[in-house]
Design a protein around this nucleic acid. Sequence first.
DNA 1: TTGCAAATGTGAGGATTTCTCATGTTTGTA
DNA 2: TACAAACATGAGAAATCCTCACATTTGCAA
Lengths: 208, 208
Amino acid sequence: MDATEDTTSQALRRAPSQKRSQERVERMLQAASALISEGGSDAMRMGEVAERAGVSIGSLYQYFPDKGAIIRTLAERYNAEGRACIAEGLADVRDMGGLVEAFGGLIDTYYGIFLAEPVMRDIWSGTQADKALRDIDVRDSRANGALLAEAWQRVMPGADVGAIERKAFLIMSLGESAMRLAISVERAEGDALVADYKAMALREIAAV
Amino acid sequence: MDATEDTTSQALRRAPSQKRSQERVERMLQAASALISEGGSDAMRMGEVAERAGVSIGSLYQYFPDKGAIIRTLAERYNAEGRACIAEGLADVRDMGGLVEAFGGLIDTYYGIFLAEPVMRDIWSGTQADKALRDIDVRDSRANGALLAEAWQRVMPGADVGAIERKAFLIMSLGESAMRLAISVERAEGDALVADYKAMALREIAAV
DNA sequence: TTGCAAATGTGAGGATTTCTCATGTTTGTA
DNA sequence: TACAAACATGAGAAATCCTCACATTTGCAA
């Protein structure tokens, strides 16, 4: 079962096998990323992506079936990075105090990334528009939730597994929503909202 | 009946003054609503809206500056309805028990609407894509949050006003997110997620 | 009633953007 | 060196939003 390669094979129309084309695809993604950070994914034009990457529009469509596929590929990259970060942050958690500290720290880290990374911001924001992106988003929350649930169970071995998994999923998904909200209001209020969310999430974790 | 004209006048390029044109604008909105419930706002074509409403494409643009304006107008309508529902539900709250019961009931009501109303579903889903729609969404959460904060203060007079207002805002905004998440997974899981959100929100309310 | 200005209505076509495909070029390898 | 497979190209087809110059209808003052 090549379940892990599923997302990739769906996103790319053709896998670049030669070194030259691998580099070109990389340039396409970087160009797209730059354009998104400048004006958002809506303002990203396929022709401009091709031009910046130094390839023809035809080459772009050789690898990406449509515009959404580029954005989805970028989204999955960022998701993978974030997930690795979460996995690392929760790896050494041994007791409830450790979990609360580690998870609280992860929220701050994520918020920092949201504030700093215009591409991630934009992709998260556009995440609701496209059905496929929405699915990626939900799957990401689920995967991150599984990581949280694992640590959670470790520190509370007696708790109901199903309930913990579901709550972890909800907490992760609402975390993203809280960040989205935070970055769309004034900075000071956004900070306070994230702090409120953090308190709420940690209380929920401790309450099981 | 004139209170709605406020939001309308911002979205409309020209206010229909004659009875005939008022009815035509109404038909345009109904046609748009029907098309959105069939295939989502993305699949809604301006030409099709005009055709269904029995008007020309030119008439459509006579009143709505762009496609987004139609969606925004519909969004504000639904928001106004929802807000009225929340205001009514929280009006008679006298103590914490009453608040918990009333707010819990409102969550269920909202969830029912989300499940039943494809148009509302779609508009909330698309809510992140368009900057203007996103602003409407945030303002709506803020207004709903103000209603919750008012009732909240009524039952806990001693609490910090600023903190309560901010938390109410967060709870309302995360409520919408929880609903969005719930309707994009299997029904049984969605129900459980909404129940979890409800418990989380009510615990937060009681914890101040 | 009549005349006229303001309001309303129209749809062909301009502008933009995504995406295709027939054709040409490069690469790995036998 | 020959050849198939992989890769690259860009003009233009297709889809869609929106405009605008012109036609029609309405309300009302004379």
